[in-house]
Amino acid sequence: MAKRIPEPVVQSYREVLRAALPASLAVGTFAVSIGIVARAGGLGWTAPAVFSATTYAGASQVASIGVITGGGGVVAAIVAGILVNLRYIPIGISVASCFRGSRLRRFVECQVVADVNWALAHQGGGRYDRRILLGVGVVMWAVWVCATVVGLALGGIVGDPRRFGLDALFPALFVAILVPQLRPRRNALTAVLAAGLALIVIPFVPPGIPILIGSLAVIVGGRRRA
């Protein structure tokens, strides 16, 4: 019998970079698309770039930009963006133990938490790898901002980014990260319940809320076995 040596989950920062590469492709093309849409919507250069750097949340940026370029009001655009972002409250609670040190340090570090690095950092059973969370997060943030600027530059040249199927990259990435997390069976059943709930409510609630309603599935799935 070989002795069991507790292995670190991630060996080196090289592995962090390896995890960041495919994620950066999806995140980067998403940001390029946002840049293109923002430029086409006449929002200028600086504001969309600052938006990416400070909000760093694709779905909520899309929601706000969509409302504004669709002729909606400022308040509606802000409310839409916030609703889409609310999932970061439970997400933040789930990774709270990854952050250490002073309040200021925790505040700054947690700003790089996004869907993709959060999901990649999940080691199962609610444990998260701090190095993946922060390492991939910082790389993704840099890619996010640069790619937005590239998109702004491309806006007006390439037309609709959906022509190249780029809008399928994000769901494909989510599915690819999801599938290995469907074990044990309880995870799969809860995920199916969440998917169903989210789909059913899409026509009835504002964007962003379906994901929150879907996450209520954890209440059913997370009960202790009788």
């Binding site: 999901a119 769901p171 995920a191 199916v192 969440a194 994901i211 996450s215």
Partner: peptide
């Protein structure tokens, strides 16, 4: 269970 559940909602 939050990670698989949020990923399921986001992908849908």
């Amino acid at each position: 269970l939050l990670t698989p559940v949020v990923l399921a909602g986001l992908s849908m």
